[in-house]
Every structure is written in structure tokens, then in C-alpha cells.
Simulated scan of single mutants.
Amino acid sequence: MAKGKVGEYLREQRLASKLSLRQLADLAGVSNPYLSQIERGLRKPSADVLQQIAKALRISSEQLYVQAGILDPREGLEGATETAILGDPRLTERQKQSLLDVYTSFLALNSGEGAARPTEAPSTERE
């Protein structure tokens, strides 16, 4: 992710919504200094914080995830898996990141040679 890309995008969306930094911080439930640091590219917000900000701005959280580099806009339907993980309030940030790491590693593994042939599980039938 380019430094500040999500911050610049957030600032544009905030200004388009005619909200001050303080107003958006209050609506999103984050501190004013923290939001300012995000906009200036000094902090990288978590998926939960992005979701809160998106709700306050009335934009899709997926847009912010793409801007933050969490989701790849070219993934199409595959991006739905990441979005579901990131949007699940029952998971902690650490659990979300762990699931995304495992999911990404499986995708990378399957994109290599021989991925077209699924491996067979050992037979459990008795002869």
C-alpha cells in the first residue's frame, strides 16, 4: 500500500460528506488525534476501525479495505471471503489476520503447478 493512500481517500470522503475531523471521529467512535494520524498516513487502521469509519461516512467498508490494501480489487468473488472474515464481529483482529494469512497461503499454494489436480484423501474403506 502506498503510504497515506487510505488516509487521502478518507480525507476526500470526509470532505465530500462535509464533516470535520472531529465530527467524523465522534461518529466513528475513534479519537480525533488517531483519525488525524490515519489521514496523514502515520497510522495503519485495523479492519474494525475501517469498518467503523465506513459506517460513519456511509460508504462500503470494502472500498476502504481496497484503499488500505487489505482487499485486492481484481479478486472479484474471491474478495468476498476476505470481506466476510474482516466483517465478522465474533473474531478478534488477531484471529482475522491469522485466517487471512492461512487463506492467502492456500491460494498461493493452489496457484502453483499441479494445483489443477486435487490430491486424493486416503481411502478409509476396508477391503
Rank of each mutant, 00 (worst) to 15 (best):
P118T: 10
R40W: 01
Q23D: 15
L99T: 04
S36E: 07
E75R: 12
T92Q: 11
E113T: 08
Q37Y: 10
L42M: 13
D48S: 13
L107I: 07
A68W: 00
G79L: 03
A115Q: 05
A84Y: 07
K55D: 09
E62G: 02
L109Y: 15
L35V: 01
G4I: 03
A115S: 13
R58K: 14
E39K: 12
G87L: 15
Y103A: 13
E93N: 14
I59M: 08
I59E: 01
Q67D: 02
L35H: 02
R90W: 02
T124R: 11
A28H: 06
G7Q: 02
V49F: 01
L86P: 00
V49N: 04
K55H: 11
E93V: 13
E82L: 08
R74F: 07
G29H: 10
Y9C: 03
L57T: 04
L42G: 09
K5G: 02
L99N: 02
G79Y: 03
R126H: 06
P118H: 06
R43S: 13
K3N: 04
L19K: 10
E82Y: 08
R58G: 05
L100P: 01
T124I: 15
A56P: 05
L86T: 01
L21D: 02
D48Q: 15
E12V: 10
L50D: 00
S61A: 15
I85T: 09
A25S: 10
S105H: 13
I70N: 01
A116Y: 14
E93L: 11
T124Y: 04
G87M: 08
S31V: 01
Y9F: 14
A84M: 09
Q97C: 03
K5V: 10
L86H: 01
L109R: 11
G114E: 04
A108Q: 11
S31M: 00
